[in-house]
């Protein structure tokens, strides 16, 4: 077949180009982009010295960790979880209780918090891997509400509606973290670790499997992908990092209350991920930035805030259904 040979040559070229991890140009661009972002992030507190803005940056970091981890569940695997705030809360409460009552150091407390969230997410993930769609979402809502009710009602353990106050100053390798700037750098390190871990996961065959499950679960199964296993894995890894964010919140705010972890928080995270863009690992960060700034700008208009958030989301969905930087929605 004469045409066949032309084809083979062409295909061969494409395949050998692909077999190198990535062409030099894109690698360079990525490295340049990442280093620029890193430099900006590192010098930011030298430029922004106002505590109000620094505080805002710290919340940006917390939401960034939350939305990166939610994106693994929502964007990559296609599971609409409304329980992310609960894992965030499990992280925050565990750290708060361990540090205030049992004088555990910050890093061990954070690790314990994340591990506990992982265990809880396994309990939720195993039944959740058997139900899909609306039922999965309902299950996560129920879990989030149960968590919040326990936090509110079990006064002896969680402090009830008042929450836990007076969480001690965290020490990282002996260094106390007190100022907004110090918290900023601690948060930045946690965000960087989250980003690197999730990047590695997403670019491995695990990421491939998750995308396949999102695209077509039946086909993914018939490719030999153990779908429940990968769904549980995405869910537990995402919850693990949500707890890391919660742990940071606890020491940063020095208090945790049930109202930090309401269903609205989960909704806000989902909106951030959708606005930023799903599927693409870092795209939700754009959503975090826009939505945090928007909520801050309209803080004085407390009643209208949700209206404005909803308005932004609808505009994005109308004009860019795949999110600002997303790649997972269909363009036709």
């Amino acid at each position: 077949m004469p045409e066949g040979t032309v084809h083979e040559a062409e295909v061969h070229a494409v395949l050998s180009a692909r077999s190198k991890p990535r062409s030099n140009g894109t690698i360079k661009k990525k490295v340049v982009g990442l280093s620029a972002a890193l430099v900006i992030a590192l010098v930011l507190p030298q430029v922004v010295t106002n505590t109000y803005w620094l505080g805002l940056l710290n919340f940006l970091i917390i939401y960034s960790i939350l939305c990166l981890s939610l994106n693994l569940i929502l964007g990559f695997t296609g599971l609409l979880s409304l329980g992310h705030a609960a894992f965030y809360g499990i992280g925050a409460y565990t750290t708060a209780i361990l540090m205030t009552r049992y004088h555990v150091g910050f890093l061990p407390a954070m690790l314990a918090s994340a591990m506990l969230a992982l265990v809880f997410s396994l309990f939720l993930g195993i039944p959740a891997s058997k139900v899909r769609g609306d039922y999965f979402t309902l299950l996560t809502i129920a879990f989030g509400e149960i968590f919040r009710l326990i936090a509110q009602a079990w006064i002896g353990f969680t402090g009830g509606a008042m929450g836990i106050v007076g969480i001690p100053i965290p020490k990282v390798f002996g260094m106390p973290i007190r100022t907004e700037t110090q918290f900023y750098y601690l948060g930045l390190i946690l965000l960087a670790i989250t980003f690197v871990c999730l990047t590695i996961i997403v670019q491995s065959r695990i990421g491939r499997a998750l995308i396949a499950i999102r695209e077509d679960e039946l086909a993914a199964k018939s490719m030999g992908i153990n779908t429940p296993w990968y769904i549980i894995m995405a869910f537990t890894i995402g919850s693990f990092f949500a707890a890391v964010a919660g742990s940071f919140l606890a020491v940063y705010q020095t208090t945790v209350t049930p109202s930090n972890f309401r269903l609205e928080e989960s909704c806000l995270m989902i909106i951030m991920v959708i606005v930023g863009g799903m599927g693409n690992l870092w795209a939700p960060l754009a959503g975090v930035l826009i939505m945090t700034l928007a909520t801050e700008m309209f803080r004085s208009l407390a009643e209208y805030r949700m209206l404005i958030i909803g308005g932004i989301m609808m505009l994005v969905l109308l004009f860019r259904p795949q999110g600002i930087f997303g790649s997972s929605a269909f363009k036709d």
Binding site: V14, L15, R18, R205, R208, A209, I211, A212, E215, D216, L218, A219, A220, S222, M223, G224, I225, S327, S328, F330
Partner: peptide, 17 residues
């Protein structure tokens, strides 16, 4: 049941999971 938002090549690679 193809993976609609992946390329033809990626679909084939997924077959070899």
């Amino acid at each position: 049941n193809v993976f609609a938002r992946s390329t033809v090549l990626v679909n084939l690679e997924m077959g070899a999971f």
